[in-house]
């Protein structure tokens, strides 16, 4: 069976894997966005000792090795680890948590850059009308929304494409925590290279589809509000 036959047959297993992959990665991006957008914006707007070091750290963490994140989360969530009582290891939620950590620095760092540029343009006006710190964050995030979409997409691309964390904390359990990437790794190890490649092409297609959708929304909305 190759990937095209799989798609054509509307295979339920494939569909479940695709759905899980999307759900895990999109959830991770959503969580990372809720934390990373305001965090990046605050970092852009505030000045404090150690800020430069924090920015360097954040930029560096954009390249955080997935395996290291996976291992750290594994040790945290393991029954023998500090959060073992939650019983989250080898669940989709564990994958969401690990991927959120992976994506957070990307979103926060790109947000900081975007907001800092926008702030230099808006500073006088917002100061003149007396907008407080949180109002500034909200205004800049909203007005930077088109550029910030790119930050979110970068995060999504990272999450959807990585295999290191989801393999370690998810365990690649059939029908439960098997994602596109771990399925590809598994088929590769079974020597089923055509199917692995086919799944890979489907994954690339998915990522492209999400990007195209985001681009469409952006273009449509930009048309309306500049």
């Amino acid at each position: 069976m190759n990937a095209w036959q799989l798609i054509a047959s509307g295979d339920a297993t494939l569909f479940a894997i695709v759905r899980l992959s999307l759900m895990v990665s999109l959830s991770a991006v959503a969580i990372a966005a809720v934390i990373g957008l305001p965090l990046g914006a605050l970092l852009a707007l505030t000045r404090f000792p150690g800020r430069a070091a924090l920015i360097v750290l954040l930029n560096g963490f954009m390249g955080l090795p997935p395996v290291v994140v996976g291992l750290s989360v594994y040790l945290l969530l393991s029954r023998s680890g500090p959060l073992g009582g939650w019983g989250l290891l080898f669940t989709p939620l564990a994958m969401v948590i690990a991927q959120s950590l992976l994506v957070l620095p990307i979103i926060a760092a790109l947000t900081r850059q975007t907001i800092e540029d926008l702030w230099s343009e808006y500073r006088d006006e917002l100061t003149a009308v007396g907008v407080g710190p949180w109002g500034r964050v909200a205004t800049l995030l909203w007005d930077g929304r088109f550029s910030l979409t790119t930050a979110l997409l970068a995060g999504f691309g990272r999450a959807a494409a990585e295999v290191g964390t989801v393999m370690i904390v998810g365990g690649n359990i059939d029908g439960f925590t098997r994602t596109m990437t771990t399925a590809i790794a598994l088929e590769t190890s079974k020597g089923n290279l055509p199917l692995a490649l086919g799944l890979g092409i489907i994954l690339i297609g998915l990522i492209l589809a999400v990007n195209a959708a985001a681009w469409g929304v952006r273009a449509w909305s930009e048309q309306r509000t500049g």
Binding site: S78, R79, G171, N172, D174, F176
Partner: peptide
């Protein structure tokens, strides 16, 4: 009963058991 299989090497699998996972 649903069985969720985490496939690892024997050494790692035993270690997963040792950790209670």
């Amino acid at each position: 009963i649903e069985v969720k299989v985490v496939a690892q090497g024997t050494g790692q699998a035993l270690d997963t058991g040792r950790r209670g996972d």
